[in-house]
């Protein structure tokens, strides 16, 4: 599903350049649930942003579902993002003046799906994350866990190839974190490929594979026995 060869990324900071990713080789099969771990500054978020086409690498190859991702202009990147990827952010990033339902329907708007069908599909995904009754509520009326579940529903609405989650539990207490992880595991059970960036051990162990990043290189890549979040809920 994802194939990365010798990926480099550096940021210019004034006259210095900060080498963040120093040759990453990495691949993900369909249906995997991968945790990307590392302390802050290890380059894990940068890697996720490049995978999400929110940022571009300086050199290296990146194939997503057999499609080479390079030399993308903004319009093409936007189309690929819409078609291939779903995002979940630490700070939820819901649009605050739109209801939960409208937030979930937004990626479908950019796919030019008619409004009625869009809202029907959005409602289906809200139901999957257990928030059907909250469809008409604004983000400000939802709890943190509910917001993240809306964000996950939104990421899933466009039926992406890969779901990218950047510290999805970073702003949540542990009980709510496990609820969200439970949801992510269930989505994974349906065969979806998911990458989760986290620095929390317990969250990482709820995935099926842990990739450890340190100073811009992969220092460890191992399969683990998945801990089901439902045990804690």
């Amino acid at each position: 599903m994802i194939e990365i060869k010798d990926l480099h990324k550096s940021y210019k900071m004034g006259s210095n350049s900060l080498h963040v990713l120093k040759g990453i080789n990495f691949s993900v099969e369909e249906g995997e649930l991968v945790a990307i771990m590392g302390s802050s500054g290890s380059g894990k978020s940068t890697l996720l942003n490049i995978l999400g086409m929110l940022d571009v690498a300086n050199s290296g190859e990146y194939n997503l579902d057999g499609v080479p991702i390079k030399n993308l202009n903004e319009t093409k990147a936007a189309k690929y993002r819409n078609k291939f990827l779903g995002f979940v952010f630490q700070s939820f990033n819901l649009i605050n003046y739109k209801s939960a339902l409208e937030n979930v329907a937004l990626p479908l708007y950019y796919q030019r799906i008619p409004r009625k069908e869009r809202l029907e599909r959005a409602l289906k995904y809200l139901e999957q994350v257990g928030l059907k009754e909250w469809a008409t509520h604004l983000p400000s009326e939802l709890s943190g866990g509910q917001k993240q579940r809306v964000a996950i529903a939104r990421a899933m609405a466009s039926e992406p190839k890969v779901l990218l989650a950047d510290e999805p539990t970073g702003a949540l207490d542990s009980v709510t974190s496990y609820e969200v992880m439970d949801l992510i595991q269930k989505i994974n059970d349906q065969g979806n490929t998911i990458l989760v960036v986290t620095h929390e051990d317990d969250i990482a162990h709820m995935c099926k594979r842990i990739v450890h990043l340190k100073d811009g290189v992969i220092v460890e890549d191992k399969k683990v026995k998945q801990v089901r979040a439902s045990e804690y809920v």
Partner: peptide, 10 residues
């Protein structure tokens, strides 16, 4: 930015 992440073109 959110809209762009969700697939809005320039």
């Amino acid at each position: 930015g959110i809209r762009k992440a969700l697939g809005a073109t320039p």
